[in-house]
Design a protein around this nucleic acid. Structure first.
Length: 263
DNA sequence: ATGGTAGGTCTCCTA
């Protein structure tokens, strides 16, 4: 092997509004690859030149006006890109690349699912479940190898992925049904959750609501953002971090960037 | 039980 790769995933909540924060992160952390969700931009309006100037000369993206949007910027050349319209929602929620170093990267923005965890009365929740089912089906018939899956999966699966497990059991992002579906997706591609591999116990969050003042003091977070790798990479080492400080920058995204160094 | 904040196609939708 001998390959070392630093990968970052960040729900940016408007890539145009937060260009300066992205540049600061890229200068501070120098990831080889960075994956964004919620770009909220057409691809042609992504401010890619300033990212190119820092060495991120390879981009793959899917865009929409105002909603969703995913992008991958890489220092490593991209040999192939593709995207799947899971559950036929017609929304920009997935982009994947094969890199020249042999790794495949999937970048996902799973539907948030609305407020009510009920498939009959809430179309957005039904779409979230359908999206997860489609992910599972796709990985069952397109077996991923030497692959990394990152993104805002909008589900906090473990008790320690939320600030209060019991209080959040009926809150979309932590309901048993969503968690079961996410675990099915994980099983379908034989994926490993690298953050929980290294830290099986203890609280881990990547998102804090804009609606809470003193978000850091209250610390009512959830781990909605994830980095998974296929089991053929399980012998690699993973150095993981949630860049919580970034959530405290001026004009922040409500998500912190998450990073894993694979080596 | 409620309301709180933020971004974009901005008095309405999404998160």
């Amino acid at each position: 092997m001998g390959i070392k790769m630093k990968i970052c995933s960040w729900n940016i909540n408007s890539i145009r509004l937060r260009e300066a924060q992205v540049l600061r992160l890229l200068r501070d952390e120098c990831p080889d690859v960075i994956c964004f969700q919620e770009c909220k931009s057409l691809v042609e309006n992504i401010p890619q030149k300033s990212f190119y100037d820092l060495g991120y000369s390879h981009m793959a993206a899917r865009g929409q006006k105002s909603y969703n949007g995913v992008a991958i910027f890489s220092k490593i050349p991209i040999s192939k890109e593709f995207s799947i319209d899971f559950a036929d929602l017609g929304q920009a929620r997935h982009i994947a690349v094969c890199l020249e170093n042999g790794f495949t990267i999937h970048n996902f923005y799973v539907p948030a699912g609305g407020d009510e965890p009920n498939m009959e009365t809430n179309l957005k929740f039904a779409q979230k479940i359908n999206f997860l089912n489609a992910m599972k089906d796709w990985f069952l018939s397109n077996i991923p190898k030497k692959a990394i899956l990152v993104g805002d999966l909008n589900i906090a699966p473990d008790e320690n992925d939320v600030w209060d497990h019991k209080k959040l059991l009926k809150v979309v992002s932590h309901t048993p049904m969503e968690i079961d579906k996410l675990l099915e997706v994980k099983k379908s591609g034989d994926w490993i959750d690298v953050f929980r591999k290294n830290k099986p116990n203890g609280k881990l969050y990547s998102w804090w609501s804009y609606r809470s003042k003193d978000w850091s003091l209250a610390d009512k977070g959830r781990r909605l953002d994830h980095i998974w790798v296929t089991s053929d990479l399980k012998e690699m080492n993973f150095k993981n971090s949630v860049l919580r400080d970034v959530r405290g920058w001026d004009k922040p995204s409500d998500h912190a960037p998450i990073i894993s160094v694979l080596g």
